[in-house]
Nucleic acid binder design. Sequence first.
DNA 1: AAGGCGGGGCG
DNA 2: CGCCCAGCCTT
Length: 339
Amino acid sequence: MLQQTRVETVLPYYARWLKRFPTVAALADAPLDDVLKSWEGLGYYARARNLHRAARLVQERHGGSLPDDPEALRALPGFGEYTTGAVASIAYGRRLPAVDGNVRRVLSRLYDLPAPTAAELRETAAALVPADRPGDFNQALMELGATICTPRSPRCAECPVAEFCLALARGTVAERPGRKRVGALPLEIVGTAVVRDAAGRLLLVRRPATGLLGGLWEFPGAVVGPDEAPEAAARRAALAAGAVLAPDAAATAIGVVEHTFSHKRVAYRAFAFRGAGAAAADAAEPSGAGVAPGDPVQGGGRHPATGRTWADETALAELALPVAQRKLARLAAAARPRL
DNA sequence: AAGGCGGGGCG
DNA sequence: CGCCCAGCCTT
């Protein structure tokens, strides 16, 4: 959870997580849908899928307890160089470095490194880690970055290692480490369809299992093409999801949700369609050919691995939705009385 | 080595 | 509005 996410953000998720999945076995036995639902709002959902897979591997390979061997840890999904070093040093007292964003900044300044590679930082950190209490040392280095050697306005006057800091001596603290991003994020416009069946249930589709927001649910949507109207893209997405709309069915614009991802910005332009017709019942089945409703899908999820569903308010609350889609759901609920 | 991959908080 | 957060995985 702490990968690329602030401690303060993680805390409430972590508490709920331990209550829901108190043991490795509980996590391994849980359906992927439950895991994703518990992760909803945290982002970087591959972390949840990796953790789930890791729990199952720990059950299978290591009898349910996390291995203390760094190589065995590194082989688990989600365990990169940092996490392996952090767990091995903090939990098992192994003398391994743990270079996170904080440590990268601290070392870049301490040694005045303009553009250190990951390997360079790892070697630098490895040479510093003591055999005695390596985990405490690693945490201290991270803590130094979090509290004193901050990205902006570092408190060098209070820094315990200021006398060793090359960047401070050379006046390059503000330039370490170098920045990366150049130019603005591309903007994407997604025509989004809010479709209700006769019972007022909402049509949702599941995203592919991997990639952006993998395995999560969303309103049918399509990227607006050149010379295409957002409403047309939304209609296209609704039809692709199996909705049956009268050809001239009127759509009502019900609002826009903008969201910034790590690599692009997306504007979801939402349209409510009337006249979702008889095929509503059909569409309750998974769209993937050959996938029967009761078939166990990856992770034993209770929802189809691919496909669509009609969700009432209760079902909607139980599905794992990205933050932007939750906002769209609120727009849909607000628009309903007028339709 | 570079790019894809969320979401929130802060200056 | 840009930057960054106890990074990982794929190419």
